[in-house]
């Protein structure tokens, strides 16, 4: 199967890359741009913040080719549905796109989603025509509710944001995959390339990460590693792995042994 024929479709739009990356925490805008390039990502997340009234300050978007990337504005830092909805409306006006990564956080220590507020915000945003990609708990019930509301994807966490702990509960991700039809994208928790590959091998439609790349000792190299891991994991999933067995099964024929 050619990887190029295996498109990811979200909100009616087609993407070739299944790796989505954040644009925060890099040492410089130049480094951000190079890491994005190396990751092969087509969807990149951004945050919505007050403009710095100091005009000398450069902007991230000065370094990013907007023809190449689909911006996915997030609602990071929002703790209520009202704040998240307000941020999305501003994002749509600033970016002229309906795509939003909806996150409504429960507390600062865990950055776990407040699923009650998340559902409330998702309902309003879908009704207003947004293409909503919600960051949520790895909980199939919440994911099904988000799908029923009309979200374009569900994005369960693999582990806490920025923790690098990997996919802590692959069984929950599997249950979600078996019970929703919208794309399932693991968002948050990935620490290294193998984590991304595991998410893809489970059958996820994509992986979204920021810290794992931006916080690596060499973010540019890690961006490439993540690109390859997502491709490898996807191919491995599609190829169908062998069953796990407790005992050995020889690879070489037993016939014709010398003796």
């Amino acid at each position: 199967m050619a990887a190029s024929a295996d498109k990811l479709i979200i909100g009616g739009r087609e993407f070739t890359s299944r790796l989505m990356v954040g644009t925060g925490k890099y040492a410089s805008f130049e480094q951000t741009a190079r890491a994005l390039e190396m990751s092969g990502a087509e969807i990149i997340t951004v945050a919505v913040r007050r403009v710095n009234l100091d005009r000398s300050k450069e902007s991230l978007l000065d370094y990013i080719d907007l023809k190449k990337y689909t911006l996915l504005p997030n609602t990071a830092g929002c703790y209520t549905a009202d704040d998240a909805v307000r941020t999305c409306r501003l994002a749509r006006e600033a970016g002229m796109s309906d795509f939003v990564k909806l996150e409504v956080l429960g507390d600062e220590k865990t950055l776990f989603p407040d699923n009650e507020e998340l559902l409330k915000a998702a309902k309003i945003l879908v009704a207003e025509g947004f293409t909503v990609l919600p960051y949520c708990s790895d909980d199939v019930i919440v994911c099904k509710k988000l799908e029923d509301i009309g979200c374009a994807a569900v994005m369960p966490l693999g582990a806490p944001i920025g923790s690098g702990l990997g996919i802590r509960n692959p069984y929950n991700i599997r249950i979600i995959l078996e019970n929703v039809t919208v794309p399932v994208i693991v968002d948050a928790g990935v620490g290294s390339a193998s984590d991304a590959a595991i998410a893809m091998e489970l059958g996820c439609a994509g992986v979204l990460m920021n810290t794992a790349i931006a916080g690596a000792q060499d973010p540019i190299a890690m961006a490439e590693a993540m690109k390859l891991a997502v491709i490898a994991g996807r191919l491995s999933f599609k190829a169908g792995r062998i069953p796990r067995k407790l005992y050995a099964n020889a690879s070489s024929p037993l016939d014709g042994l010398i003796g």
């Binding site: 954040g22 925490k25 997340t45 945050a47 919505v48 913040r49 902007s59 991230l60 990071a76 600033a94």
Partner: peptide, 8 residues
């Protein structure tokens, strides 16, 4: 007045 900044 808001704009886009780096974020995850």
């Amino acid at each position: 007045i808001v704009h886009f900044v780096g974020g995850g």
